[in-house]
Simulated assay, not measured.
Amino acid sequence: MSQSVIPAPSAEVKGVAERSAPGAGERIARALEKSWRPFALLLACFGAWWVVAAAELVEAYLVPSPGATLDVLLEKTDYVWHHTWVTTYETLLGFVIAVAVGVFAAVVMVYSQTVEKTLYPILLFAQVVPKIAIAPLFVVWLGFGIAPKILIAVLIAFFPVVISMVTGLKAVDPEMLQLSATMGAGPWQTFVKIRFPASLPHLFAGLKVAVTLAVTGAVVGEFVGANEGLGYVILQANGNLDTPMLFAGLLVMSLIGVVLFVLVEVAEKLLLPWHASRRGTDVTTTF
């Protein structure tokens, strides 16, 4: 009995159009199309901020003007840069440790149900405990150095990494695993060639969340006990009613999170060009 072969969709089939690879101009146009709305919203927010400050709807010591905030950043560039670097360093180190430990824990949990049943409730319990509540304990144990800040950043960023990695490793098509076993691949080969690559989209989704949470963790640690970092800057500005510096610290802290998120997004685009969300040439339906 002959088997019928279903032809691949082509541009000649009604309702289907083949999309060619986008050129440089088209890619720039797409980037602008995606980015103009967020920029417009940011401009609107800054415009509303300027209007509130200029009309003196709120006292200046409560909400400084954008100009006053920018003046503080320009006048104390070295001061702000030093504390920004401290927070960035704590964030990156905590994020890297959280990724390494989280990926390892996820792999162990997926390959051992005993470990998963034992470790998962503990991870859930550790996640629901407010980090701001246990941060003073870390300061008592580890002192006022950099270690408590990194530890808090690790604890906050760890959960999204391990959960997304476990989900990705379990989301592999069972038929691919059966095919791998049929072809004689061992557990390590199956992991390297099938499980790990298939889990990367889920992992990167978790990394985007984790890298922004790591900034929060580092700043929380600085709130509790520190003599440098953006958390320290914000606390000092709050105590001195220096709202321009307080707003400047908040803006820089937000900028760190945005930049790190974009870097993870770029890494995902470079490492996962094969993923469906990254394909540039697809057959797309037109109805």
Rank of each mutant, 00 (worst) to 15 (best):
P174S: 12
I234H: 01
V264F: 06
G168P: 07
A29W: 15
L263R: 02
L271S: 04
V209I: 07
A147Y: 11
W49N: 01
I134V: 13
M165A: 05
E268S: 13
E90A: 14
F223C: 02
I6Y: 10
V72F: 15
M1V: 05
W36G: 05
F159N: 08
S65N: 06
K76C: 11
S199G: 03
F159M: 10
I122C: 11
R30P: 13
T285V: 14
G231W: 00
P66K: 04
A29Q: 08
L235N: 14
V219L: 12
P174W: 06
F191G: 13
T284A: 15
G206A: 05
E75W: 14
E56C: 03
F95E: 05
D71V: 04
G168I: 04
F46H: 03
T285L: 15
T167N: 15
P160C: 07
S277T: 09
A210N: 00
E268G: 13
T284P: 11
A181N: 08
V192E: 10
S65F: 08
G186C: 03
G239F: 15
G249I: 01
D242L: 10
V5P: 07
R195A: 07
V224Q: 11
L93T: 09
A31D: 10
E12M: 14
E268F: 09
N238Y: 12
I134E: 02
V101D: 13
A55D: 08
L142C: 13
G186H: 07
L151T: 07
V139K: 09
N238F: 10
T69E: 03
L92P: 01
E56T: 05
D242T: 02
F95D: 07
K193A: 11
F158Q: 01
A17R: 07
L142W: 12
A126D: 00
K149W: 02
L177T: 00
V266L: 14
G94F: 10
T87R: 05
A11M: 08
G257D: 04
T118D: 11
T118L: 14
S254D: 06
V13A: 12
T284S: 15
L230W: 02
F138P: 06
V115P: 04
T114I: 14
H83L: 05
T118M: 14
Q3W: 09
E33W: 11
E116M: 12
K193S: 12
I152N: 03
T84V: 02
